[in-house]
Design a protein around this nucleic acid. Structure first.
Lengths: 231, 231
DNA sequence: CGGTTTAGGTCCGATACCGCACACTCAGTG
DNA sequence: CACTGAGTGTGCGGTATCGGACCTAAACCG
């Protein structure tokens, strides 16, 4: 794959030199639905830069699961590696199929050693991801299901080109830490307001502005930080 | 202040050389209750290494406030600076009075440039703090108020020497994003189980194990990461 | 084409938590 | 020593969400 063809914004934002540094180690891979990217407390072997699709970072404990962050073509998995660790307590897997370029933890670590500018840029992303997680904590603590759903749909929508998201209520329920029927209700509510349309397995975003309003303060902060630091 | 006198574990864990690098720039300060450490979207002037007391990182939006992370003598404020930013979208202030050593953002940045080992160690802390925030997201999304309260009390207790926490229900309510009477109820529930005792303005931790059990999976993950990476 | 799987909708009672309001009580202050 | 204010306890109706179950409908498969 030629350098110019990357669609991952983090890779695209690198200097030519930094991109050349990573390019030989990058390996294109398919992101199949549900594919595991990181297992809790297990060494991270590769770090993924999605070209399309979405990767979820999910906290798991006592049979409970809930998404704490999500990664698309704007970012990368494995931020732990950027900060000197080689594992994480979270489960990380593909939530929306797509493609990615991945690099082995070893090669990435070497590249980070070799280039200060690379390190700085990727660490800025790590910071933005931290803000995203903080926003998730905020949303989970203060917002109702429909607002959290709106936030989630917006974040997913930001990470792909068209307006159709291929997801089931079941999966969304896990993401939000809610019951599946609760998600069904919330989706119907959003559809009733004309913000989305939904069919079996497909959700179509219709009015982003309405979704943003409904999400309240839970959406936008991390996105603004990203724009400020990485664009 | 002599090097040996630090009580902040992050400073204590540094190599002698790194401690010498920071020491001349460290300035002892009082952490008065409610003192502001960082304002949202305003340059971070100083980074604080608490010796005692607790600093809260609070996400604010649309008149809603909720704590996403908390910092005591095990850590430092201003993780954004470690990752190349100089502000953060969160409100950061003193939640439990104490003392700290602080360093200007400029001096810290210079020291991070000068010492790779310093940078690596502090960035590992930043990673642990990120895990803590993720746990908050988990707790907020899945746990009931009494479990979240138990988690919060445990985390505060970890960060001081004795068993008495001087807090009002009102402040805890803000931390948890709950109503004040909800906190009163939850505290009474914990007291009924013999896990704590409470008087006006004081909460005394009695049975940590019981609190940990009640907190479910919401407590312990970030603490384990800290032990693994920084002890 | 008929059977099976998977996704979605709906209904039930229970409950945790909310918003709001008000009463009590302890601790300091004039 | 009464007064005041902050901290705490309590009550009440309303509602979001839960846990569990069940039923329909679309898609898939031999």
């Amino acid at each position: 794959m030629s350098v110019a063809n990357y669609r991952n914004q983090l890779l695209l934002g690198l200097s030519k030199a930094d991109r050349r540094l990573l390019a030989p180690s990058l390996e294109p891979v398919e992101l199949e639905l549900r594919r595991s990217i990181e297992k809790p407390n297990t060494p991270i072997t590769h770090v993924y830069f999605p070209e399309s699709g979405i990767i979820s970072v999910v906290a798991t404990a006592a049979q409970q699961q809930i998404e704490v962050g999500l990664i698309g073509r704007e970012g990368m998995s494995g931020t732990a590696v950027l900060l000197g660790d080689h594992r994480s307590p979270s489960d990380v897997y593909v939530q929306l199929a797509g493609t990615a370029n991945r690099i082995s933890t070893k090669h990435l670590t070497q590249a980070l050693e070799a280039s200060k500018t690379l390190r700085e840029r990727l660490q800025r992303y790590a910071y933005v991801f931290m803000v995203q997680i903080a926003q998730t904590a905020f949303a989970n603590g203060t917002a109702k299901i429909d607002a959290r759903l709106a936030r989630w749909l917006l974040m997913a929508h930001d990470r792909q080109d068209d307006d159709e998201l291929f997801l089931t209520h079941e999966f969304i329920a896990v993401m939000l830490g809610a019951r599946r029927p609760g998600v069904t209700d919330a989706l119907n509510k959003l559809e009733g307001k004309g913000l989305i349309t939904a069919e079996r397995g497909v959700i179509r975003i219709v009015r982003r502005k309405g979704l943003i309003a409904l999400a309240g303060g839970a959406y936008g902060v991390a996105e603004a930080e990203y724009a400020r630091l990485l664009e």
